[in-house]
């Protein structure tokens, strides 16, 4: 099996889908010729292979990039547009939240908008809060959008292929730290459906529900706890919308304990949704209160000691799990 970073896996998916379907094109800032001439990045080399008609470098114009995707998709193309960093998505959000998410509904189900918005995200690169703000809860809150946040390169490849073939608008959020960590990725053409969560590690004592980069943190914590005789089940959501309620509930009914882990800030974070789901549907099986481990409710600070304080770490997870095990 090949070892790829998340960025390389994304590139493989983009490339294969572009070869498979000529209606697929990519657009965004610096995706053809960028300031980082680095083969590890998700769109590196696509311009050379597919040419400037299908690999569109755009001006710094997020609203127009998003609108381009909305308009092109209703005409039958399959745009995959990139928003460089999650905070800049706010500029694109009118087109995505007010339009992409709603126009099919407003057409009475007659039109479709098969577009993908790829967004880079995540703290831990010293770029401060205007580059590192995780906003997945914003988009997961909007009916009409599907929201994908892969935690491994292998998932990223299969999920992105499905996202591109999906007839709905899909928000595909890639944590940048995962672009530095190569992991095994199957070489063949495969897809992973949007919806099902994946149990990355089975266990009996406590369920950790997480996604994206925090998957690694959860698995590391689970590994350490295993040595102390604590068995952790790690559920990787992979997609926030649609949400795989069954897998979450089944796991919590088995373990009786839930810890939700995400890097985004706490209040209004998607972790609250998971906690509410379990409170509504598995309350009687809970042996302990639900626990959330998240970033605190602050913007991402620049300085390293404070940035590290912001990002949930293994110790936070281990302590959190121990606290609910009592």
């Amino acid at each position: 099996m090949q070892n790829l970073t998340l960025g390389e896996a994304v590139k493989q998916a983009l490339r294969e889908e572009m070869l498979r379907d000529e209606n697929v094109f990519v657009a965004g800032e610096g995706i053809g010729v960028g300031i980082h001439n680095n083969p590890k990045l998700p769109t590196h080399g696509l311009l050379e292979e597919f040419g400037p008609e299908r690999v569109k470098d755009t001006p710094v114009s997020e609203a127009a990039i998003a609108g381009l995707a909305v308009g092109a998709s209703v005409m039958g193309l399959r745009p995959v547009v990139e928003i460089m960093f999650n905070p800049f998505f706010t500029i694109a959000s009118d087109q995505i939240i007010n339009h992409a998410a709603k126009l099919r509904y407003l057409s009475g189900g007659k039109s479709k908008f098969p577009l993908v918005v790829r967004i880079k995200t995540g703290a831990g690169i010293g770029a401060g809060c205007q580059h590192s703000h995780n906003l997945e809860a914003w988009v997961a809150h909007c009916p009409g959008l599907k929201v994908v946040m892969p935690g491994t390169p292998a998932d990223a490849k299969g999920l992105l292929k499905t996202a591109i073939r999906d007839d709905n608008p899909v928000i595909f959020i890639e944590d940048m730290i995962l672009n530095f960590i190569p992991m095994p990725v199957p070489e063949e053409d495969y897809t992973i459906p949007l919806g099902p969560a994946d149990i990355k590690k089975p266990g009996d004592d406590v369920t950790v529900v997480t996604w994206s980069k925090m998957l690694g943190t959860a698995l590391n914590a689970a590994g350490k706890l295993e040595q102390q005789g604590i068995s952790v089940e790690v559920v990787d959501l992979r997609t926030l919308a649609p949400l795989d309620e069954d897998t979450i509930l089944k796991s919590v009914r088995k373990t009786g304990r839930l810890l939700v882990l995400h890097e985004a800030t706490r209040t209004g974070g998607f972790g609250g949704e998971i906690a509410a789901l379990v409170a509504e549907k598995a309350f009687n099986q809970l042996k302990a209160p639900v626990k959330r481990i998240t970033a605190p409710d602050i913007p991402v600070p620049y300085s390293k000691p404070m940035e590290q304080f912001y990002i949930p770490n293994e110790d936070n997870v281990i302590n959190g799990i121990k606290s609910i095990l009592g």
Partner: peptide, 25 residues
């Protein structure tokens, strides 16, 4: 106090009231 780093330095003391790294912001 280390919250901004190079990208967002505000110096209200000299009326540089905002440095934004959101292009056009």
């Amino acid at each position: 106090k280390g919250k901004s780093g190079t990208l967002h330095i505000a110096a209200p003391e000299v009326n540089v009231l905002c440095t934004t790294t959101v292009v056009g912001g």
